[in-house]
């Protein structure tokens, strides 16, 4: 475990906590895309099936349980909690997210490191995670008033991906045979999707103005 990965995991954890804080404490999910949250729930459910087959560390298992639990509870909150559900921007959150799932599954069947059930699902989760933020970015662009928590949530998620890239560079130079092209390329694509958001986020921060994405 290097400092970049730990920082990346902690940033990821912080993003989930920010979102849970908003939903649980303020009872609002305004500006949060349910489509993205559903995709993340699928991502974690398919990636962390190896909880049952491989053990790496207590840390690893605990974090997997946290990400599984939080992603499913966020989806349930948004769908079934009366007050939270009322604040959901249903009319704006119209991205056809199921159309992302099938191409990712096909790509995972075609391009993978090993053709086993768990490995193909793991690869599918990498491809799906790379594009899962798209509905959220589209929703942000449509939302007139992006509140601070939603902006911070997306910023932390993007930060987590950026830190993971530093982690891969570090591991490549310090660990022999650490080469994972599929993970790297999907991670890079995922991080690039945030580039635009990061630009406007830093602008709003610098000018001390409310975050607003151009339509």
């Amino acid at each position: 475990m290097n400092i970049f990965r730990l920082a990346g995991d902690m940033t990821h954890l912080a993003s989930v906590l920010v979102l849970l804080l908003k939903i649980h404490t303020i009872k609002s999910c305004a500006g949060v895309s349910l489509k993205t949250q559903e995709l993340y729930a699928i991502v974690f459910a398919t990636r962390y099936l190896d909880i049952f087959t491989s053990f790496y560390s207590i840390y690893n298992t605990l974090m997997k349980l946290v990400f599984l639990g939080s992603s499913f509870s966020i989806v349930l909150y948004m769908k079934y909690h009366k007050t939270v559900h009322r604040s959901y921007d249903r009319e704006q959150d119209t991205f056809r997210h199921w159309f992302l799932v099938l191409p990712c599954l096909l790509l995972a069947l075609l391009i993978h490191e090993k053709f086993t059930f768990l490995e193909v699902l793991w690869t599918f989760s990498l491809y799906l995670e790379a594009v899962a933020i798209l509905p959220q970015l589209v929703l942000l662009q449509r939302t007139r008033n992006i509140d601070n928590l939603t902006g911070q949530y997306v910023f932390l998620l993007g930060g987590y991906r950026g830190l993971y890239i530093l982690n891969w560079i570090y591991r490549y130079f310090t660990e022999p045979h650490f080469v994972h092209w599929i993970t790297w390329i999907s991670g890079l694509v995922q991080t690039l999707l945030y580039a635009d958001f990061f630009f406007y986020y830093s602008q709003s921060w610098k000018n001390n103005k409310k975050l607003q994405l151009p339509a």
Binding site: R5, D9, H12, D50, T53, S54, Y56, S57, N60, M63, K64, F67, E113, K114, T116, L118, E119, W122, Y164, N167, T183
Partner: peptide, 10 residues
């Protein structure tokens, strides 16, 4: 051959 891939990252 049947050993699972090492996925130690999250």
């Amino acid at each position: 051959q049947d050993k699972p891939q090492n996925h130690d990252e999250l």
